[in-house]
Structures are given as C-alpha cells and as structure tokens.
Amino acid sequence: MRTELSKYKNSKRYKSKIRQDLFFKSIFQLSALLSSMMIVIIIVFILVKGLQPFIAGYQYGTRNFFEFLVGLVYRQDQGIYGVGFIVVNTLISGFGALLISFPLAVLTALFIAKIAPKRLADAMQTVVELLASIPSVVYGVFAAGSITVMVKNLGAMLSIQTAGGSSLLAVMLLLAIMIYPTITSLAITSIQAVPEDIQHASLALGATTTQTNFKVVLTSAKSGIFAGAILGLGRAFGEATAVSMVAGNKLFGPTFNLFDITRTLTSTILTGLKETTGVDYDIRFSAGIVLMIVILISNLSINLLKNRIGSQK
C-alpha cells in the first residue's frame, strides 16, 4: 500500500497535477492582490500628480499650497486657483442636501419597515429601488429641465434674479433627491435588524406601537441610519455630472445665497478642461485630493456625532 502511494507520488501525472494547482493558486492570488492594489494606486498617483504644482521647480510656475487651500477666487483665465470657497460651497450643498433628505429618508424607512401594510411596503420599497437605479446623468437632465425652472419661478415670486435657475438651491434639491434612496435603504435594513425583544419590552411597559417605533426602534437602529447618512453624504460630495448641469460656474465665493450660482469641487474638476498639459490640468488632481480629504473628514465627523448621540441615551 505504502509503496503504491509513493509510486504515485513520484509519477509524472501527480507532479503535473500539483504544478497545475500551484499555477492556478498563484494566478488567483495575483488577481486578488491586483484588485486590492487599485485603491493604493489611485491614491498614490493622484497625490503625486496633485501635489506637483506646489513643489519648487514646477515647470508651469510653483503655486503656494496655502493660497490654494484658502483662496477665494478660481479663475482659469487669469491663472488664479483658490479652492477655499469651493470647499465651503461643497460642504454647504452636501450638508444642505442631507438636511433635506435625512428626515424624509428615515421617516420613509420607518414607514416601509414598520408602519405600512405588506403590499404598500413592497410597493414603496420598489419606488426607493427605482430611485436608486436612475443614473446620475438622468437626474441631471431632470434637474436642468425642471428643478431649475422651479427655482427660477420661486425666485421671481420673491423678486430675486436668478441665473436661469442654476443655483445653490437647485444643487441642494438635486442632491437631496439623489442621496435619498441610499439613506432610506440602509435605514430600512437597520430598522429591520432591531431585535424584537426590546420592542416587546417597550410595548409591555405601556408604550403605544408608534411610541415604540419612534423612541425605541429608531434609536436602536441609529448605527445603520448614520451609516446611510455617511454614504449619502459621500455620494453628495462626489456627484459630478448632475451637479455640473445646475451649479453654474461661480468664480469667487463662497456662496451663501440660496439663489446665487455656486461651484463645487466636482464641477470644478469636470468642467472647462481644454488641454491635458499645464497647470489647469494638474490643478484638477489637487482638487481631487481635496475632495477625497473632504469626504474622509466628514465621514469621521459624522461617526463622532453618532457616538455622541449614543452616549446621551
């Protein structure tokens, strides 16, 4: 028996089988490593390219990094690049959208997960999924054709002049619609995951179903709900095509007036590229770095906020 086995182990067939196994394993391993390397490649290359304009000896004239970060004017024609006000605009539009969308999304999630009868809940779930599957460029067309008209009419009613409706308000409304399905679907998942016993406990203490829903279920599901808010905010900051269609192209700022045109980091990166050389090209990568940092910091701060709310309860 033992000699049979060792004979087989020394045979050509067995060896080629082992070799084949090793070959496939290394291919699988390689592709897994490649996939996980992508994020590193993205970050490293964009960092290197984006920091170039601020390093001494830059061929198109070194820029001051500090002036870039806090600058309040962005004019390609004059070569002045300051993204300080653009960051503020991005934060305002993103958090504004979250402010509109978050309560609506959480209430809808509660309705779908707890309050609505089965049929209605299924229908509403489909509505949310449909909203989530609409591509951003379609949202952009919708916003450019209807939200801007609405804002323009609203402005005319209040006798405020708008630039054809392209405005901070239009951007906020658009983003609110776009992040709504993200927040809602995460909130639904986390509300459904709230354990039954604590709801029963609340009911047994004499609370009504509605009181239980609002005071027990929502607070227990807060972790998932805030995760949805983070995802939604990330989407709001990173959304490019749709926002560029309604933002206008403000050259200085920041914009606090709801009816004034604005400019976000993504619309700055996306619009007006003419050549793929020169500082105007490189500075978009710098704006890309700032965008990623903005997303990162706002994620961290929402996480902090979540923990605050947790400790009070």
Binding site: I42, L231, G238
Partner: peptide, 20 residues
C-alpha cells in the same frame, strides 16, 4: 481595500484613468 473602492467618487476614477 476592495470595499474602499466603492466609496471613491466616479470622477476620481476618471482622473485616475487619464493619469495611470
């Protein structure tokens, strides 16, 4: 790190494609 890719805005992918 693969999961992180989902959070990257698509415009950043565009920049990366152009560059890398």
């Amino acid at each position: 790190s693969i999961e992180l890719l989902t959070g990257v805005p698509s415009i950043i992918f565009g920049l990366m494609g152009m560059l890398v």
